[in-house]
């Protein structure tokens, strides 16, 4: 019960801070504090009556909730897909890497530092250029590099773009945490008992590092939502951030951000519960 209360508090605080932030441009444009509070009042009213909220589509007002569901689910599937694939690939590769000898691991870590410092925009540009290059050379169009309109949906390219850097971040973090864990005594003990290294790695080390990875994944997600905005603009995708960016009103920003936040919030609450149960710490992380 206490847990639910805490989560509810967290959710409410998130929404409140989103609303407070969404009023800030008004404050900056007019340099007037009372107008800022008026704007915030407006935003609050709109958020509480979201089913009556309207937005302008080609000059005509339309109901916001009628139009938002399908692009919303599209954006979420891209984000979730990228996060899931990045996480799974990183986990598998970590297990493989940790079975390798030391000097190869060192080389991989140096390579990862290099990959980590690629700016995301460069990654998107290279993916774009790579697809065009493959098409020019072989005539095979791997995937459309841009969606043509609201109806056409591309999945592969945005997911690949979004997952590359999070994959690198996860991979590096997992290796670092697992190496730290491997130097602990219980690992030595279980190896001495005759357990296979892969078994210790997959079962014990992974379980004990899961908490750290979980906390780390929050900042990865933070980074990915920012990237989603860029990906949707670059590839001309009509997702939720398209609505956010094309109609830059505070109400719109607040509504879209709240919609984006809620599923991840629930997901993380679920994960936290699972991790507490699996690691049996008995302590709420």
């Amino acid at each position: 019960m206490k847990i639910i209360k805490k989560l509810l508090m967290q959710l409410i605080l998130t929404i409140v801070s989103i609303i407070l932030i969404s009023g800030l441009p008004e404050l900056i444009m007019n340099k007037n504090v009372s107008m800022y509070f008026n704007k915030i009042k407006d935003v609050c009213r709109d958020i509480f009556q979201m089913n009556q909220m309207t937005y302008f589509n080609q000059g005509k007002p339309r109901l916001f909730l009628d139009d938002i569901w399908s692009p919303y689910i599209y954006s979420l599937s891209i984000l979730f897909g990228a996060l899931l694939i990045a996480f799974c690939m990183a986990q598998l590769l970590t297990w493989v890497t940790l079975m390798l000898p030391m000097f190869i691991r060192g080389a991989i870590k140096n390579l990862l530092t290099f990959l980590e410092s690629l700016p995301d925009l460069l990654v998107f540009a290279l993916v774009q250029m790579g697809i065009v290059l493959i098409y020019k050379k072989t005539g095979v169009l791997v995937s459309n590099v841009a969606s043509m309109g609201a109806e056409e949906r591309i999945y592969i390219v945005p997911i690949v773009c979004l997952m590359i850097l999070p994959f690198v971040y996860f991979y590096k973090m997992m290796i670092l945490l697992a190496e730290e864990e491997l130097s602990k005594q219980y690992v030595e003990m279980s190896l001495a008992k005759g357990m296979r290294r892969i078994y210790v790695l997959v079962v014990h080390v992974t379980r004990n590092t899961s908490e750290g990875i979980f906390h780390f994944s929050k900042s990865v997600l933070w980074f990915m939502i920012s990237n989603l905005l860029l990906v949707e603009i670059i590839f001309n995708i009509h997702g939720i951030t398209h609505y956010m960016y094309s109609d830059f009103r505070p109400e719109m920003l607040a509504a879209c951000l709240i919609l984006l936040v809620i599923p991840f919030f629930l997901l993380y609450a679920l994960f936290e519960w699972v991790i507490v149960h699996f690691t049996k710490r008995g302590e709420w992380v």
């Binding site: 967290q10 959710l11 605080l13 998130t14 801070s17 989103i18 932030i21 929050k218 900042s219 997600l221 933070w222 939502i225 920012s226 990237n227 905005l229 860029l230 951030t241 956010m244 920003l253 951000l257 936040v261 991840f264 919030f265």
Partner: peptide, 10 residues
């Protein structure tokens, strides 16, 4: 930690 869900770029 709720600030983790507010993307900075946007």
């Amino acid at each position: 930690s709720s600030f983790y869900f507010i993307p900075l770029t946007i």
